[in-house]
Amino acid sequence: MSLVQIDHLCRSFGGVHAVRDLSLNFDAGQIMGFIGPNGAGKSTSMRILATLDLPSSGDCRVAGLSTVDDADAVRRLIGFMPDGGEPYPHMTVWEYLDFFARAYDLGPVKGRQAVEGVMDFCQLDGISGKLASTLSKGMRQRLSLGRCLIHDPQVLILDEPSAGLDPRARIEFRDLLKALTGRGKAVLISSHILSELDELCDRVAIIEQGRLVAHGTVEDVKSQARQARDVAPGPDRQRLVDLRLAEDRAEWERTLAEQPGVRIERCDRRSATVRLEGGDADQARLAKALMDRGLPLCHCAARADGLEDVFMHLTDGAVQ
């Protein structure tokens, strides 16, 4: 059994089905990316997993414990970072973490050690006396992560932790998460910055209108998307192809434009990127056609799909 298991989870609000039959799982040391458009049901699923809401049917389990029937035990095992949680006013960084150490009933010695450990890990040492409300967004997110870690949970549930962070803060935050998986933590993270999840995650789940569209390792999901696209009819069956010539040719853009099923995305005298309708055979046909026209083609390769491509392909942006 996986450390975190979501089984046939459903949640409705009145007539709106926020989550429909969602099932996924991930293990210790893994980062699971949770991707979906706004209103897809990510936050609702995360809140149920964090014991803060009840499912309409189905269940979530952490280390085999139900988030409904064993909520108290599960809360000891998870750290949750909601989207938009602000620290208390008039409290310093140290006091904020100390409050949560006391709230988790860690005891005076263990609590102090936990606060010091978390401040060290999240690099908050230099600002321990600063008022939490005066911190930058990046520092506040680090503080929130520190709060999540204060009781040393096995599972971290992070709802859009990178939202509003500048690139440096985002990279630093990503490094912290990588370090956490090195410590054996399981992380469920939602984000709209898909390139970041592409680099960070071991597994991803794509959700739309409450339904799971794809899930598995990042490579599996990309491959699923690629296969789906290759068998899809018409314009859905597209790929980005990078082309490069051995020498400059001013006239080749016109030649490219004449090829059937090709839409030029970018083109200069020696290289181009085109969107090609079709699969491998069509790509080979394009290469042959260009060489037949006397162009010294030295590179013709389909671009590897990123999560953004997969996401765009698998979802249609519908909201409920």
Binding site: R11, F13, G14, A40, T44, L54, G210, Q320
Partner: peptide, 16 residues
């Protein structure tokens, strides 16, 4: 019996 959510609940976040 498993305790389930009420279908009449209001979405606390409103955006899913």
């Amino acid at each position: 019996r498993q305790t389930l959510a009420s279908t009449e609940d209001r979405n606390p976040r409103g955006d899913g």
